[in-house]
Design a protein around this nucleic acid. Sequence first.
DNA 1: AAGAAGACCAACCGCACTGAA
DNA 2: CTTCAGTGCGGTTGGTCTTCT
Length: 248
Amino acid sequence: MRKPCCDKQGNNRGAWSAQEDQKLIDYIKTHGEGCWRSIPEGAGLHRCGKSCRLRWINYLRPDIKRGNFGHDEEDLIIKLHALLGNRWSLIAGRLPGRTDNEVKNYWNSHLQKKLINMGIDPNNHRLNQILPRPRAEHAAPVMATSTTTGSKNNVAATKPKKISNGDSTDRVSDTETCLEDENEESMVTQQAATSCSSSIHIDLNIAAPASPGQRTTFENKQENCKWGKTSSTVVTDPSSLPTLLLFR
DNA sequence: AAGAAGACCAACCGCACTGAA
DNA sequence: CTTCAGTGCGGTTGGTCTTCT
């Protein structure tokens, strides 16, 4: 397999210092985002390009929105996850100012637990057979309070190892979307979007994400028709799916 | 007050994809 | 057509903070 790009000896690793951040910001401000490989050298950073890119995209970019996720953002993530699975960059693309890493972390640390508490399997967004018994004072679904479940280990335990069979479409196989069988995804997403209750009005067409210039592999695949699966049936009425609780 | 357990999140790692040579 | 460098993405890790006992 490929050699990692970050095997260069002498590179810093771990947390970024304020000085390093500033160097990166200054460099990108003057030269723009370009060849990530050349950025560390140009900026005088002892980091690999990959690390610089990550730091910039996830933390230093000026349009990053930091802080708690709003209620509608949460709602949107859940809905998008139901549609798209673990395609975090796509999901993040619909949330202005949010990064894929942030969305992913929020999902793993908050939303999974929330869904579990609501009796919904976060992997496929289906209603679980056995609902967790709500506490008397919390008859309605509520935000996950501090529970003993859902620790890092528990979360990890729910995640099967990545299946690497060379078929990139299977990269989301561990968290199948409830609409996984769709091959007319954009159509379905539109339908789902219209069936969302909602104060949230979004365009769920699979198109260029909110952040300009960012083109995902997923979208490339879309364009190249590599989604490939043609055998599955198209569910034209999402309301017929018993699983899409959140779209009612 | 102190240690343990849990929660959160920044960063790293490995793999897949693309495009140029 | 093949190879390889560059890049992006998703999964995972590990450090730090917070809460619990």
